[in-house]
């Protein structure tokens, strides 16, 4: 975890860590009913290539006059110059963000958080399991791995969505199925359109098709809604992947992203600095990481 900070420190040190830089929306289009894709570049073009980040890190995005909210970067640092986001309309800030048009500006500061421990993942087999909005950070990781394909072992990507219409980046992932250096397994809970040619069932059904894996040499990254963790983690742990090699990103309310506002605190950690990527080992040893609540008596 600490190692990631080095990446941060390499950046030009900014005087005011709360200072948003102005970025311009280059592209914006809907991915699903309530999720939009945003592509942005710095207004100051010289800044474009200086923005360095790690998959899994997030930025604080400002809509002027509305406020700030944290969002993961969905694009890969291996394709610099532009940042991509996939954002769900949830409330006040996202509503105003959705009202912005291409060519309009927004504020961005960051990147923040630890991100995925890319260096430790090199040389390992990679298993990525995503659902819902969890795809936002996972897409960054997946694209990064594919762009540095020779540095990683076998790569498996499992993705579940409620319906084909809800599957973020559906066309993109369907294309990945064609590649032979990656296993891309997709499923939907149900399909009313009759157009879906792939698996039907919850994401855990994909584990049946997995075949043998080299568990000890595998790093898993799991992101999705809380309900998904509940079921998926069981499967991943049963595969025998060591707990500290199972990674997940956590969501907390965030107002600063830099360990000042207190909102994201969990025991002695700040999700914004020590996370948002945590290992399953962290999670089972810290009571409040996934809000297991006071009455959870399990010893995982």
């Amino acid at each position: 975890m600490k190692k990631m900070c080095v990446v941060l420190d390499d950046r030009e040190v900014q005087d005011n860590p709360f200072q948003p830089d102005m970025w311009r929306i280059v592209r914006k289009y809907p991915l699903t009913g309530d999720v939009n894709f945003f592509q942005a570049r710095p207004v100051d073009v010289d800044e474009a290539l200086k923005f360095n980040f790690v998959p899994g890190q997030f930025i604080m995005m400002s809509v002027m006059g509305e406020g700030e909210a944290p969002f993961c970067v969905s694009s890969s640092p291996s394709r610099p110059g532009l940042l991509e986001f996939c954002i769900r309309k949830m409330g006040t800030m996202t509503e105003s963000l959705f009202a912005l048009k291409e060519n309009q500006t927004l504020g961005i500061r960051g990147p923040y958080g630890n991100g995925f421990p890319i260096e430790k993942m090199e040389g390992k087999d990679i298993m990525i399991v995503g659902g819902g909005m969890g795809v936002a950070p996972l897409r960054s990781l997946l694209l990064y791995i594919l762009d540095n394909r020779d540095k990683f072992g076998n790569v498996t990507y499992l993705h579940g969505a409620r319906t084909p219409g809800d599957m973020l980046f559906r066309e993109e992932f369907l294309q990945l199925k064609e590649r032979d250096d990656l296993r891309c397994l997709l499923t939907v809970d149900k399909d009313d359109t009759g157009m879906w040619k792939d698996k039907i069932g919850v994401v855990t059904t994909l584990f049946k098709d997995l075949g043998p894996i080299d568990a000890k040499n595998t790093v898993a990254a799991v992101c999705g809604p809380p309900i998904m963790y509940k079921f998926v983690m069981d499967y991943v742990v049963k595969l025998g992947i060591p707990k500290h090699q199972i990674l997940m990103t956590l969501e907390r309310r965030m107002k600063c992203g830099v360990g000042k506002c207190g909102h994201c605190a969990i025991e002695y950690l700040y999700t914004c600095i020590d996370g948002p990527v945590f290992s399953w080992w962290d999670v089972i040893h810290m009571k409040e990481l996934i809000g297991r609540g006071a009455n959870d008596k399990t010893i995982a």
């Binding site: 006059g65 509305e66 406020g67 006040t92 509503e95 105003s96 009202a99």
Partner: peptide, 10 residues
């Protein structure tokens, strides 16, 4: 002021 600017009052 916020409403006029198309923003959500806080």
């Amino acid at each position: 002021a916020k409403l006029v600017a198309g923003r959500h009052p806080y």
